[in-house]
Nucleic acid binder design. Structure first.
Lengths: 326, 326
DNA sequence: CTGAAAGCGCTAACAT
DNA sequence: ATGTTAGCGCTTTCAG
């Protein structure tokens, strides 16, 4: 910039004015400056600008795994909102590791992102308190923040599995299994709660042998499913606690001759062709809502932290309407 | 930092030393500094650090759409490599719009990312020449750079559809259709070329009525497929040019009573259950390879730009082995 | 309409 | 072992 000023024979500030389209420059001076800019291949260094202005025009998103289509859609929705506000999005995957989540979030804060959206892996976010106090607006999505009060956007996990399970009961099922993610994960716990609520609503007994929580690795889900499908009183229907569980469940059930009903959580590509009944949540709406909330904060909204819950939707496609086999 | 120094009663540089784990500080002084840091909730401002050091420890990735699982996996693989090198990843979606690609890439350069990985939407990347000259290492993935010489990592699109088409021919098909993405997209053109090469290899005629290129929007793909499946000489097999086309093709074929063979490009979740034969490319390997190349450049590798092509793999699952129906 | 000077928060280089 | 000074490239302030 100094070089540009020298070459154009003007002061530093004049170049700054031209670069930022500020008023108060004669068309002729502006032309000379632009020529110098082109000749020197100059481009403003935003790092320096940020240092001076205090705002980075960027926001951070900490999620679990960008390769999971659910988070991919969510991230894309956040990006669109950020773009509408002239901000860039930096995202990082925590791989469901609380320590990594923390590192990432703090690294983003050190870069002075204007705001932060976090899909929590851990259950204690007090480490963000100083950052939030220092002015970094923060919104939690998909799972609630741990031990701090902050804006949160969730899907109605409880209502979702409750409806899905009730749907199976309405189709005559009495022995229904539930396979979900690790119990420490808030959504996993909520979904289990919804499943149990539906059974209780219908006056059916709760049987721990029909509930399995843990890693969503295919092998674990497979063996959990097989255990429930065997024995003297096999389940006639399954509720899958998330998209990865649904996928494995579909695979396992496809190998059995006796038909077993299934309601999955999260929609899947091609689920319509496979006739998989699911409780769908809207990843894009989750991301959009959180991002809009964040930018409202950045624009100065100072009301109390708010918790929003987005509805889920049961989509019957066949697998959830299979009657119990005797 | 100044405040920390004052509070701890030490010089500025001493605080800097502690914050950066540099040697030359008495344990006792260090303790005092750390106390002050905690008391003040201080965290280093990386913007200032970047300005001084010249490196941002971040790289940029411009891709088409983060919500597409193919790019999601690719991005995640890039992120892992970046993380191993202590760098953050900033990604942006071009939405297949060359102008938006340009804006994004230049915005990333203005933030002085250390390097840039681009999945081109446009066909002319000369706009990046000044940036590259200014030291921003750049690698292109999935599609080649336009009109500039740069490191590039591609999948073997040509070989992929050639093998896929040959597979259908080996199973007795003579009238095979091809539905692909817009012809301006390099991979789309290469895949069409592979399809044609296989037909020519087998001494089969090329018939333009059996080729359709254009948007991958479901309606367009659907009508293209229906056109090829009708008429006096309907195709007995289809080659789909990418994952979105494959999905729509599967839907259309599922509605027909007469079986039609299908080979898709790009693997899909649940494709095994649906028995869809595909030519799979490895999105993660693409991202990893590109990112490794980028960091090698950042570490000073100055050899001539290099073009790498990664093999694709035909996975037979049933749909590609259906014999032609008379 | 234009420019000179100060300083954003940090680190490199050089004292002490 | 610790402190001082200069300056990264820009914007802000204020004076011409």
């Amino acid at each position: 910039m100094k070089d540009v000023a020298a070459r154009a024979g003007v002061g530093l500030k004049t170049v700054s004015r031209v670069v930022n389209d500020e008023p108060g420059v004669t068309p002729d001076t502006e032309r000379r400056v632009r020529e110098a800019i082109d000749a020197l291949g100059f481009r403003r260094n935003d790092s320096a600008r940020v240092l001076r202005k205090g705002r980075t025009a960027s926001i951070g998103l900490v999620l679990e795994d960008l390769a999971d289509p659910f988070y991919g859609s969510l991230s894309r929705a956040v990006e669109e909102v950020a773009r509408a506000h002239g901000a860039l999005l930096i995202n990082g995957s925590s791989a469901e590791d609380p320590e990594r989540e923390r590192e990432l979030a703090l690294a983003l804060c050190a870069r002075r992102v204007d705001g932060l959206i976090v899909i929590p892996a851990g259950r204690d976010h007090r480490y963000l308190e100083p950052e939030i106090r220092a002015g970094i607006a923060t919104v939690f999505v998909d799972r609630p923040a741990g031990r701090i009060d902050a804006d949160t956007v969730l899907s109605d996990s409880f209502g979702g599995t409750r409806a899905g399970t009730a749907h199976l009961i309405a189709h005559g099922h009495r022995r229904i299994g539930f396979i979900g993610d690790r119990p420490g994960i808030h959504t996993a716990a909520e979904r289990l709660r919804g499943y149990r609520a539906a059974l209780t609503d219908a006056g059916l007994p709760l049987d721990d042998a029909r509930v399995s929580q843990g890693s969503t690795a295919p092998e674990r889900v497979r063996s959990a499913a097989l255990a429930m499908l065997g024995g003297p009183e096999p389940v006639t229907a399954l509720v899958a606690g998330n998209n990865r569980v649904t996928v494995t469940a579909v695979r396992v059930l496809a190998e059995r001759e006796r038909p077993v009903a299934l309601v999955g959580f999260d929609d899947l590509d091609l689920a319509d062709l496979l006739g998989i009944t699911v409780v769908a949540q809207d990843a894009a709406a989750l991301g959009r809502t959180a991002a809009e909330r964040l930018f409202r904060r950045l624009e100065g909204a100072a009301d109390a932290p708010e918790q929003v819950t987005l509805a889920t939707r049961l989509i019957p496609r066949g697998s959830g309407e299979i009657p119990p086999s005797p």
